[in-house]
């Protein structure tokens, strides 16, 4: 075991898989000598060489197209998109090409590509750096979308994503990069894809969240516990597919559900979670399913982030509303 920040856990996962599989390649803008704009790839080029860890020209479509081509030649590419707000540049390559390759070749061609990309608010980034655009990729058949909320999951999920033979979009939360530390095992271990995680057990209310909002939700659960309210917190971890089995089981246990996301109300995956629970467990519910999400505006100007981003206060208010519903 070692104590690692979220970003150290990511670097460690990359190092582990660069070591374990010589077909893995790490590339993107500034990921080489510079070690990434957030140091996620720090030291990797020095350790594994320029043939395995390298910089690319500044062109996102090119980076993902390069990945598809490399995958066709038997490689396991781990490209980086510097900020996920830049994904629009690469949408055809991700959603029009990479995601379809297995399908359009009758299941005969693997494209084991893991796209890493940071997103998320709270650090006063300039425009198009923090936007939550996960739903855009989560609604594309053929893609898995994963977003860890803590260092342990970050390493284990990233290793699973890299080892998976299909494309995975791996979304890293900027605010979490250095704000938390946790015990992380040395060497290779996997956190399974496609699986949610009950991070806190409870019986009165289920809060379903992902990425940074898991930690906000945990704060609320602890606070409500002091008042005798038992809150279960489910970390989705995987946004495509969503682990319905785990969320439905929790809803059937607590009978009350709140879904939390940082994305705008019209975006994110909260509405999908709500509709699935409605279809599968409506008779178990004692209250309407609630949602906490951001307002339906463009992502805010930096100075307005604190007023705009959904936080523990918003979650607490909505949780109380659902708990008190009769």
């Amino acid at each position: 075991m070692a104590t690692m920040s979220y970003i150290q856990a990511i670097t460690d996962a990359l190092r582990t898989q660069l070591k374990n599989d010589d077909k893995t390649l790490v590339f993107g803008e500034d990921v080489g000598k510079n070690g990434g704009v957030f140091r996620a790839t720090d030291g990797l080029q020095a350790e594994f060489g320029e043939d395995r860890v390298f910089d690319t020209p500044l062109a996102e479509s090119g980076i993902i197209g390069l990945s598809t081509g490399l995958a066709l030649q038997g490689f396991r590419p781990i490209p980086e998109i510097q900020f996920f707000g830049f994904v629009f540049e690469a949408m055809d390559q991700i959603a029009g090409q990479l995601s379809r390759t297995r399908y359009r070749t009758n299941g005969t061609v693997n494209v084991p590509v893991t796209i890493r990309s940071p997103f998320g608010g709270g650090t006063h980034t300039p425009e198009m750096h923090a936007d939550s655009l996960e739903a855009m990729v989560a609604s594309v058949p053929g893609l898995r979308v994963v977003t860890p909320s803590n260092p342990y999951d970050a390493k284990g999920l990233l290793i699973s994503a890299i080892k998976n033979n299909d494309p995975v979009v791996f979304l890293e939360n900027l605010k979490l990069y250095r704000s938390m530390k946790a015990d992380v095992p040395e060497g290779e271990y996997e956190v399974p894809l496609d699986k949610a995680n009950v991070v806190r057990e409870g019986t009165d209310l289920t809060i379903i969240a992902y990425s940074a909002e898991v930690n906000e939700s945990l704060k609320v659960a602890e606070k409500l516990e002091k008042e005798g309210k038992s809150v279960e917190v489910v970390d989705l971890r995987s946004l495509a597919p969503i682990d319905f089995e785990t969320i439905v089981k929790s809803a059937e246990k607590t009978h009350r559900v709140l879904v939390v996301q940082e994305a705008q109300r019209l975006a994110g995956v909260a509405s999908k979670v709500v509709s699935e629970i409605s279809e599968r467990a409506i008779l178990s519910l004692d209250a309407p399913i609630g949602r906490v999400s951001a307002p339906d505006t463009i992502y805010p100007f930096g100075l307005a982030e604190d007023d705009w981003l959904p936080n523990a206060e918003d979650i607490e208010a909505k949780a109380r509303e659902i708990l008190e519903f009769n």
């Binding site: 197209g65 081509g69 995958a71 030649q73």
Partner: peptide
């Protein structure tokens, strides 16, 4: 075109 660059790099 861009996929060709990738295949050729492979």
């Amino acid at each position: 075109y861009i996929e060709t660059a990738g295949v050729a790099l492979g």
